[in-house]
Design a protein around this nucleic acid. Structure first.
Lengths: 203, 203
DNA sequence: TGGCAATGTAACTAATCGGTTAATTCCATG
DNA sequence: CATGGAATTAACCGATTAGTTACATTGCCA
C-alpha cells in the first residue's frame, strides 16, 4: 500500500459506510476493518469522526458540482444547457451513488448539521440552474418558472432513481412489478429533461 | 393519562425524533425526556426500539396511502385521477413532514431494513399510479410511460419540497436566494401535476 | 545511513446507550 | 374499602463506541 493512497482509501470507504448507514450508524471500528486500515490510522489522517464526515462530503460533492458546471458552460443555448445540466447531474450521480444517499439523509435531517462546504456545492448547482432559467427567460425561450421546484424535480427524481437501483434489483419480480420498465439512468435523465423542458418552452 | 394516550404520545414523539435524527441517531433517553414519559414506559408500551420504529412507521405510512387511494377512487377520468393523486399526496405529506424525512432516510439505506408494512404502503401508492396510467393509456388519453419514473418524480420532488421548508425559512435571504419564489406546497403540487400531465397527454 | 512521516498493534478510557428490574402508584371493579 | 392488574418510576447493568496512548515497524528521501 502506497502511503499517499491511505487517506483516500479511508475517505472512499467512509463515504460508502456513511451513505449506507448514516453518520450515527457508521461505527469507526467497522470502518477500520472494512477498509483494511487500523483505527489509529483513521484518526491520524482525519482528526475525528466529524472531520472525517466533512472531508468525505467535500470530496464527494465538489467534483459533482464541478462536472455539472463545466458541462453546462460548454453550451450556449439555454435549452441545451438545461438538458446538459440534467444529464450530467444524472451521470455523475449514478457514478457515485454515495452522493444521493448522503444528500437525501442530510435533507431529511433538515440540513441543519450539513457541512458548509457540501452545502455550498449544492448551492452552486442551484445557482447554475437559476442562471440557465433566467437567460432562457430573457431570451424568450422559457416561460417564467420556479427554479427551486425544478431543482427539486431534477435532484429528487434522479436521486431516488439511483438510490433505488439496488432495491429494485433484489425485489421479487411480481406480476405487477415486472410491468415496470427497467430503464437505466440515461433514459431516466432523458425523460426528466424532456418533461421539464417541454413544460418550460413558451408555446 | 390513559393507556391509549401514552402509547400514542410516545409514537408521535418517536416519529418526530426518528424523522429528524434517524434510527441510530434517536436516543431512547432523549425520547423519554422529550415526550415526558419514563424510559421504562416506552419499553412497556412498545417492546423495544426496533418495534417502536416499526409501529411509528406503520402509523405514519398507512393513513397516507389510505388518503391518496380514497381521493383517487372518487375520480373516474385518468387525468383527474392523476392530478388528485399528486395533490393529495402533497397535502398529506405536508401535513406530516415526518413521513418525507423517514422515507428519504429509508431510501438512502437502500430500503433494506425498512419495515414490511411501511414498504407495502408505498407499493399501494405505486400500484395505484400504475393503474391510473394504464387506464389512461387504454383510453387513449395518455401515451405509454414509465410509472416508476413518474412515481419518483412525484415523491422525490414533493418530499424534497416539504423537507426543505424549515431549511429555507432559516436561510439568510441573499440576493440570489431571494429570487426564489416562496411557493407553498399547493402551488408546488400544481406545478408537478401540470408538468407531468402535460408530458403524458397524447398530442 | 539517519531522520521523519506514516502505519500497525493492542490495550485502555470514559462516556453513552439500549434494555432491565424491583418497587411504587394509579385506578377500575366487586 | 379492598384488591389486583395496569401503568409508571428511579436506579441500575452490561455492552458498545468514540477516541487515546504508548510503542514498534515500515518505507521514503535527503
Amino acid at each position: 500500500m502506497t502511503r499517499i493512497d491511505t487517506s483516500r482509501k479511508i475517505l472512499d470507504c467512509a463515504s460508502r459506510m456513511f451513505a449506507q448507514h448514516g453518520y450515527d450508524g457508521t461505527i469507526m471500528d467497522d470502518l477500520a476493518e472494512q477498509c483494511g486500515v487500523n483505527k489509529a490510522s483513521i484518526y491520524y489522517h482525519h482528526k475525528d469522526k466529524a472531520t472525517l464526515y466533512d472531508n468525505a462530503l467535500t470530496a464527494i460533492f465538489t467534483p459533482i458540482a464541478d462536472a455539472v458546471i463545466e458541462a453546462v458552460e460548454a453550451q450556449v443555448e439555454p435549452v441545451k444547457q438545461l438538458r446538459v445540466h440534467i444529464k450530467t447531474f444524472a451521470r455523475v450521480t449514478a457514478d457515485n451513488p454515495c452522493f444521493a444517499s448522503i444528500l437525501m439523509r442530510e435533507m431529511a435531517s433538515g440540513g441543519a448539521n450539513m457541512p458548509v462546504p457540501a452545502r455550498q456545492q449544492m448551492q452552486r448547482i442551484l445557482f447554475l440552474l437559476m442562471r440557465i432559467l433566467q437567460s432562457g427567460e430573457s431570451q424568450g425561450v422559457f416561460r417564467s418558472s420556479d427554479a427551486l421546484i425544478i431543482h427539486f424535480m431534477i435532484i429528487g427524481t434522479l436521486n431516488l432513481f439511483v438510490i433505488s437501483i439496488p432495491l429494485r434489483q433484489t425485489l421479487p419480480a411480481t406480476d405487477q412489478l415486472e410491468q415496470l420498465q427497467n430503464s437505466n439512468i440515461e433514459s431516466a435523465a432523458d425523460q426528466v429533461a424532456t418533461t421539464i423542458i417541454a413544460s418550460l418552452l413558451v408555446k
